[in-house]
Amino acid sequence: MEEEELDRIAVDRCLQGDVDAFGVLIERYQRPVFNTVLHMVGDAEDAREVCQQAFMKAFEHLASYDRERKFFSWIYRVAVNESINHLKARKPHETLDERLQHPRANPAERFEELEEWTHLHEAIMNLEPNYRAVVILRHFVHFSYNEIAEILNLPEKTVKSRLFTARQQLREALEAKGHGHQ
């Protein structure tokens, strides 16, 4: 049975009152969704909370989920929107730089250990969130342009355009940090 069909069955069971069926969906999607949110918000503890909120919101609005669409597109959209809301609600004085310099203890300490990735991470975190989302969905979660367009509810050409601009900004940021070749 395909995953899409398994998703539909789990959604049906949830809507019929079987709350535990939602656990199956969480288990199936928590890893990619967490990684997406982690790169969106840049902090593992925040990512854990945003993910949990996203799953709870998805459950609460399950009745409004369009069954003609893929469940994974919908849960990613909820997660990306939650991430963007979280970023907007962040304390104005709590800059990304401060957060990067003083990472809190978190449940995914490996994220903090990826020292060689620091400059790229900083460059990604400096992207505007709508552009960051496209980069993450394309290069970290490996969605197609069409899938990203569906998740973000954007025309495919806009996805491509944002991705181009985002990679250009990343390139410039990395060059400014001394990466690349002469």
Binding site: R31, N35, L38, C51, R110, L114, R171, G180
Partner: peptide
């Protein structure tokens, strides 16, 4: 090179959220 760097980032193992969310 940017794409190569992006795609070389390993996935992080998430905390188990099933129990917490449920």
């Amino acid at each position: 090179e940017v794409v190569k760097q992006l795609e070389s980032v390993p996935q992080v193992e998430p905390p188990d959220m099933r129990a917490a969310v449920m």
